[in-house]
Design a protein around this nucleic acid. Structure first.
Length: 218
DNA sequence: AGTAAGATCCAC
DNA sequence: TGGATCTTACTT
């Protein structure tokens, strides 16, 4: 059974934390509805000055801005951003305070609160949280209301609470590959920063980002 | 001030 | 394959 996550669990850089989030649980309580997600697919994102390699695919690639401020803050908070004007996507902030980093939660299995998840999304089964937009919708977390919510303290933010729990044992069968929908070189095998549980049916479909296929040596 | 592109999803 | 929908960041 998973244990409550501690802030120190996210002090390392995203590339190191990402695979350890597989099999972890994200529990949210929004509008009185509890939904528990078992994470099956994630992606690491760094930022300017983070780690050995720059990350041209990150929202924090150009340094701190109003939008990506949460990514530079204390680890263990959730960076919630608006994708394509429609979808609220959820990241776990990683790395020391003052260093940008996050792990995008791309897919999950709903293990508690299926009724609430179905009511929020109108979908069922493995599709409930298959893809970051769907995962965000089912979690109930929304941009900009819940950006920066602390998943360690469990402190309420605008009526929402979020908590992370980590597995005692890391998931054994982890696959890696290019990140989904990321443009240019950052979306190629030069950045194999997507991690998923091999064979899990809730993992989202892969697609190249703009210009990524052309830039890929494969 | 205008515009292009975006860590997506769904319908055609 | 294109539209929805809107914010951000870069260009006039």
């Amino acid at each position: 059974m998973p244990r409550p996550a501690e802030r120190a669990d996210f002090a390392a850089l995203p590339l190191q934390v990402a695979p350890r989030l597989l099999g972890a649980h994200l529990v949210t309580v929004v509008d009185g509805q509890t939904v528990r997600l078992r994470l099956t697919e994630v992606e690491a994102y760094h930022g300017r000055g983070t780690g050995d390699v720059p990350d041209p695919g990150s929202h924090a690639r150009m340094g701190p801005t109003a939008r990506n401020a949460t990514m530079w803050g204390e680890p263990g908070h959730l960076y919630v951003y608006l994708s394509h004007g429609i979808h609220s996507c959820v990241n776990v902030v990683c790395g020391p305070d003052g260093v940008a980093g996050g792990v995008l939660l791309r897919a999950a299995e709903v293990v508690e609160g299926t009724d609430a998840a179905e009511a929020r999304s109108g979908r069922t089964g493995r599709d409930l949280a298959r893809g970051p937009g769907r995962l965000g919708q089912v979690s109930g977390l929304r941009y900009p209301l819940h950006d920066g919510i602390d998943a360690i303290s469990g402190e309420a933010l605008h009526g929402a609470v979020a908590r992370l729990l980590l597995p005692e044992e890391p998931v054994a069968d982890v696959a890696t590959g290019p990140r989904v929908g990321v443009a240019g070189l950052a979306g190629t095998h030069a950045y194999p920063w997507r991690f998923w549980i091999q064979g899990d049916r809730t993992v989202s479909a892969f697609r190249w980002g703009r210009g990524a296929a052309a830039a890929s040596p494969d």
